[in-house]
């Protein structure tokens, strides 16, 4: 069942393809949109402009393809995503090795325009296409004892040159609490701007959890495990002091290396201003209830 969550951003917030091809024209487009603002919905007052396809697909953290931002775009073509399979195991009614097509069969795909906030204090706005994770979990049948969902990224050294270096303990692992996984905001994305998601962005299927730092949104998923224990997650394993299991976007909890109070939205040029970071990345109304009574400085 889709459309549990209604986007405050609309199709009108997406820069049309001919416009994002040229930044100057995008600025002109924004002026045009401003002229229409009087007849548009109040949500448009947010003036969130999705990033260009070029920026979204050329500035990536995907360490399996190298640690520089431009490495994934340069190297990810080596990943073969055809015939993709996902192992679903643990506390599920129907475990097994699913082909991506069979896992997605019958599920309704929709567009979600989300803010995307990296722990490195930069951000983007991305128009994703995908299905709610809940729909996939409903399909495989979550058993009553399950409390967490664990994910794993593909681990193919021949296709992912970054795996030669022990930057992290491979394969990349992430996890969510079950209620977070079932939240209507939590998406499994297969597309961006209505096109198939490029490899550097996590083809053929990736997680998108918009109220958490970007590294939680694990890419190129090959395994989904339902478990009753909090799963080990890669960045937490590498440096538990800096990266917690929850990693919710929170401007009041500072990271040892980056102030999380502000962020810089990609695409503003050399004199781009920082903007204040929003609690839960602006999704406080939707997700704050999940963490009621939790001390978010302890469970960061």
């Amino acid at each position: 069942m889709a459309h549990r969550w209604t986007n405050t951003l609309t199709r009108a917030d997406v820069t049309p393809e001919p416009l994002w091809l040229n930044r100057r024209q995008v600025i002109a487009g924004a002026l045009g949109a401003g002229a229409m603002a009087s007849i548009a919905s109040p949500a448009m007052a947010e003036t969130l402009e999705p990033n260009t396809w070029e920026h979204i697909t050329s500035y990536n953290n995907f360490y399996e393809f190298g640690t520089d931002k431009e490495d994934p775009a340069a190297n990810a073509h080596r990943l073969n995503t055809s015939g993709w399979e996902i192992e679903v195991d643990g506390l599920v009614d129907a475990p097994g090795r699913y082909s991506l097509t069979s896992l997605l069969e019958g599920l309704s795909e929709e567009e979600r325009i989300y803010r995307f906030r990296c722990v490195e204090a930069w951000s983007m706005v991305v128009p994703w296409n995908g299905v709610e994770l809940k729909d996939i979990l409903d399909k495989v049948g979550v058993q009553s004892g399950a409390k967490y969902v664990a994910f794993e990224t593909a681990n193919r050294p021949d296709e992912m040159p970054g795996l030669r270096y022990p930057v992290l303990d491979w394969p990349y692992r992430e996890g969510l609490r079950l209620d977070e996984a079932l939240h209507p905001l939590t998406l499994m994305a297969m597309g961006i701007y209505g096109k198939p998601i490029p490899n550097q962005n996590g083809a053929p299927i990736r997680l998108v959890v918009p109220w958490k730092y970007g590294f939680k949104s694990i890419k190129s998923i090959v395994r989904i495990t339902l478990t009753d224990q909090e799963p080990a997650t890669s960045w937490n394993m590498a440096n538990a002091r800096e990266y917690g299991f929850y990693s919710n976007v929170n401007p009041t909890v500072s990271h040892p290396r980056w102030s999380q109070a502000s962020e810089r939205k990609i695409g503003g040029g050399l004199f781009n201003r920082r903007q204040p970071t929003l609690m839960f990345n602006g999704y406080e109304a939707e997700v704050a209830d999940l963490y009621k009574g939790m001390d978010l400085t302890t469970y960061f």
């Binding site: 930044r23 990033n51 070029e54 920026h55 050329s58 500035y59 931002k69 431009e70 930069w122 810089r264 990609i266 695409g267 040029g269 050399l270 781009n272």
Partner: peptide
């Protein structure tokens, strides 16, 4: 390159 928008998507960090 930074002034002419040729330093990639995040020119401040790049510079």
């Amino acid at each position: 390159a930074g002034l002419t928008d040729n330093l990639g998507p995040e020119p401040i960090n790049e510079l």
